[in-house]
Design a protein around this nucleic acid. Structure first.
Lengths: 115, 115
DNA sequence: TTAATTAGAAACGGTTCCGAAACTAAAACT
DNA sequence: AGTTTTAGTTTCGGAACCGTTTCTAATTAA
């Protein structure tokens, strides 16, 4: 039998996920949102290889996720001038606004939970 | 500027999502996990049309998600004998165990947050 | 300066998902 | 009984994603 606090945790996950599904604007995969959150929450600089190691996926997975999210304006890329093999992944205004909305949703849904 | 409680909400979402990405066992999409959680948290009976309406997606999306999760043993389907047009979607032991683990992860990551 | 390493992207083939439309079967209506 | 409606699935063409492998460019090592 699942306990009450388990149910509340899962209810939160459900409610926020449902809001993300309803929000047709971006439709990110779990990997993509994890990458996006890493870029916005972890200390920079962010590189393809660093994200690949963190998520335990191959580099092409990161490259393609950045392609997709770049098209949507959620992240941008810039060559590292100190070592031009590197690509520095950067935040965008659009990405910040999107995550701010996601944060609002999480807080709102958490507030609605029984305590 | 993102506030502290925003950051904590997003950090929780990040940490749990990262755990889900690391967990190679099931690899569900956001839609799939939303459907799975609906089945386990909302009062039955669960039907294709009901889930489609709730998620605001077409019925084939639900059918296919149930196909995928059925193969993984996370849900099962049964004809409604009272109205044989309906399909009743049911929980499984495997699905319960999986969501119990997800609940554990959420609670664990929430505990690790600064307060 | 040439060879080896490193970072990231591109190419390849396969899988999965999508929405729209067509289809099957069961129930309800007339 | 025959038509219409309802529930769910299947099919279709297209898009996105996956892992592996290959490629390009930049840096480091010999």
């Amino acid at each position: 039998m699942i306990e009450l606090r388990h149910m509340q945790a899962l209810r939160l996950w459900h409610d926020v996920s449902l809001s993300l599904v309803h929000d047709k604007s971006h439709d990110l995969t779990v990997r993509q949102i994890t990458i996006l959150l890493s870029i916005y929450l972890d200390p920079p600089p962010h590189t393809v290889r660093g994200l690949a190691a963190k998520l335990e996926v191959t580099k092409p997975v990161i490259t393609r996720a950045l392609d997709s999210m770049g098209i949507k304006g959620l992240v941008s890329r810039r060559r590292d001038e100190r070592d031009r093999r590197n690509v520095i992944i950067q935040k965008t205004l659009e990405g910040s606004l999107y995550l701010e909305r996601v944060g609002d949703i999480i807080i709102e849904k958490a507030r609605g939970l029984p305590r």
